[in-house]
Design a protein around this nucleic acid. Structure first.
Lengths: 151, 151
DNA sequence: CGCTTGCTTCGAGTGCACTCCAAGGTCATA
DNA sequence: TATGACCTTGGAGTGCACTCGAAGCAAGCG
């Protein structure tokens, strides 16, 4: 018995520091979710999940004997990452690129690292912009607050 | 002689605390910029500037005697705000709504305040999300950093 | 058995925010 | 005054990220 690997590229003996407890794991250890279960977990639509697969943004998803998708915890973790990256404004095409690198194996570690570091810089920049905007909003809100009460 | 009002809704005797020095002001105090000057200042395209006007996102922009646009410092400050709000992910339609409130005069102070406060909450949420994502990125980057060097 | 629910595929449609085009008028400078 | 860069308009086009629809197969249940 072992804990579930956190994400695709980290399913490696040495990845303990980065492994998270899977919040999706079933009591019985079952690891095959239908698309509608994944919809419930992720908030994505079934259409979007299938579309992700079509454009190469998902690793191969397992199928039932009748051809229906059966998602693993690993798939769920991957979707978690994708969702987070989407929030940073990363274009889908870039995520597809990352997915390709993951599929290509551990030879691409260096390139993946660079890609994530660039993304990291982008995220820091976005946060700085948002803080800037927050300052403007606060000035304006306090203007309206005083004007709204003093007249 | 007086300083330039900072933004549309704050051109009010009591708005000194919120006034910024206009970084665009010309030495000769001239206050009528061509569209290409505004392009240079804002980084927006001329197409986008005209489109903003068409959809009601700009206050009325002054024209030369031959019908060409002449932007004021106030217009520039408004564009600054719009650009910041865009970065927060606020839909253009919401900004148009805000612009309408500004046009409608000081009766809408309360509503404008509420709109900005909602936006403020959204921005705080976005920042939290981005920080979350940053944590994930950092974990993955350090994974690749150690894996990349130890094998 | 019939019914409901959920799944499959592919291709077409949607909404947003621009982005560009064509045809023509204007402005600064050599 | 001529040249070339810049400006005007309305409408059409683009790219992204979904989002939906149609037709049909499969599983569970009263």
């Amino acid at each position: 018995m072992q804990t579930t690997p956190a994400t695709l590229e980290e399913s490696h003996p040495a990845d303990i520091c980065s492994a998270r407890p899977s919040r999706h794991a079933r009591p019985d250890g079952q690891d095959r979710y239908t698309i509608s279960e994944v919809v419930a977990f992720t908030g994505l639509t079934a259409h979007t999940l299938r579309w992700y697969e079509r454009i190469g943004l998902m690793p191969h998803v397992d199928r039932s004997h009748t051809g229906q998708r059966r998602y693993s915890n690993r798939d769920l973790d991957w979707l978690d990452l994708v969702t987070k990256l989407r929030l940073t404004g990363m274009p889908v095409a870039d995520m597809v690129r990352y997915a390709e690198l993951v599929r290509a194996g551990s030879d691409t570690y260096r390139e993946r690292q660079e890609l994530l570091e660039q993304t990291r810089r982008d995220v820091l920049g976005r946060i700085a912009e948002l803080r800037d905007t927050l300052a403007v909003l606060d000035r304006k809100i306090s203007f309206y607050a005083t004007e709204g009460t003093t007249r």
